[in-house]
C-alpha cells in the first residue's frame, strides 16, 4: 500500500517519538536510583549547606561576576573603539591585546593578576582585595571577547546614523556616545548575555587566589563541603545555585529585548 504524504510524515514523526521515549525509559530503569540518591541527594547535607550557600557563596559569585562584567564592559568598549580608530597604533594595540587575551586561559590571567601585580607593585594594593583582583583578573579576559562583540555591534549600526548625527553638528565622540553606541548595545544584548553567563561560571576560578570563609564562592564552597562530608551532594546543590542566577537572567534579557524591539 502506498502511503500518502501526510501519512508518511505522521509515521516518521511517530517513530521518532518512540525512539525518544525508549531512550529515556531505558536510562530511567537502568539507573540505580538508591545509590544515586545516597551519593548526590542527601537531605541532611543539603540542609547543612543553608543558609551559607546563599548568604555568602552565591552572594560572592554574583559580586565577582558583576565586577568582572562591569570591568570587561568598560574596558571592552574602549578596546572596540580603539579597534575602529583612525589612529593606526590604537588599532595595533587593541588587536594585539584581543588576540593575546582571547588565547590565554582565564585561570592563568587571574593567577598573573592575583600574584603578579602584588610582586610588581609591592607598596600598592589592588583596590577591593579579592573582589578587585577577581574583577580585574576575569575582566581582562572578558574585555577581549566583549571588544569584538561590541565592535561588530558598532559596525552593524547603519552608516547613516553617524552621518545624520554629524550633520546636526555633533562631534565624532558625541555622535558615538549618544547615537551609535546606544544602538550598538541593543544589537549585542544577546551575545553580551552569553558573556555574562560564562563569567558567572568563570567566577569559580576565584579559588586560585586563596579565598577565605568570607570570600568563598559557590563552586569552592561545594568542593569544600564535598571533602568535608565525603559525599557529592554539595556539588549538585552548588550546580543548582548557578541556575538561580542564569535562569532569571535569561528572562530579564528577553524582557529587555522585547522592550527595545519597538525602538529600532
Amino acid at each position: 500500500m502506498k502511503l500518502r504524504r501526510r501519512q508518511r510524515e505522521r509515521l516518521s514523526l511517530g517513530l521518532q517519538y518512540l525512539v525518544f521515549i525508549a531512550v529515556i525509559a531505558a536510562v530511567l530503569f537502568a539507573a540505580d536510583w538508591g545509590r544515586l540518591k545516597d551519593a548526590f541527594f542527601r537531605v541532611d547535607i543539603i540542609e547543612s549547606m543553608f543558609p551559607t550557600i546563599i548568604t555568602v557563596a552565591l552572594r560572592n559569585t554574583i559580586l565577582y561576576t558583576l565586577g568582572a562584567f562591569a570591568f570587561g564592559l568598560v574596558f571592552g568598549t574602549i578596546l572596540a573603539l580603539m579597534r575602529l580608530s583612525r589612529v593606526a597604533p590604537y588599532r595595533w594595540v587593541a588587536t594585539a591585546y584581543i588576540e593575546l587575551f582571547r588565547g590565554l586561559p582565564a585561570l592563568l590571567v587571574l593567577f598573573l593578576v592575583g600574584y603578579g601585580i602584588p610582586i610588581a607593585f609591592p607598596e600598592r594594593e589592588i583596590p577591593g582585595g579579592v573582589f578587585g583582583s577577581i574583577a580585574i583578573g576575569l575582566g581582562l579576559t572578558a574585555a577581549a571577547y566583549m571588544a569584538e562583540t561590541i565592535r561588530a555591534g558598532i559596525q552593524a549600526v547603519p552608516k547613516g546614523q553617524m552621518e545624520a548625527a554629524r550633520t546636526l553638528g555633533m562631534s565624532h565622540f558625541t555622535a558615538m556616545r549618544t547615537i551609535v553606541i546606544p544602538q550598538a548595545f541593543r544589537i549585542v544584548i544577546p551575545p553580551l548575555t552569553n558573556e555574562l553567563i560564562l563569567l558567572t561560571k568563570d567566577s569559580s576560578l576565584a579559588y586560585v587566589l586563596g579565598v577565605t570563609a568570607q570570600t568563598i564562592e559557590v563552586t569552592k564552597f561545594g568542593r569544600d563541603m564535598l571533602n568535608d562530608r565525603v559525599n557529592a551532594t554539595p556539588l549538585l546543590v552548588a550546580g543548582l545555585a548557578y541556575l538561580i542566577i542564569t535562569l532569571p537572567l535569561s528572562q530579564v534579557v528577553r524582557r529587555l529585548e522585547l522592550r527595545y524591539a519597538k525602538a529600532r
Partner: peptide, 11 residues
Amino acid sequence: MVFQSFNLFPH
C-alpha cells in the same frame, strides 16, 4: 541635511 533614508535615530 535631509537624507533619502531619513536616518532618524531609532532608539
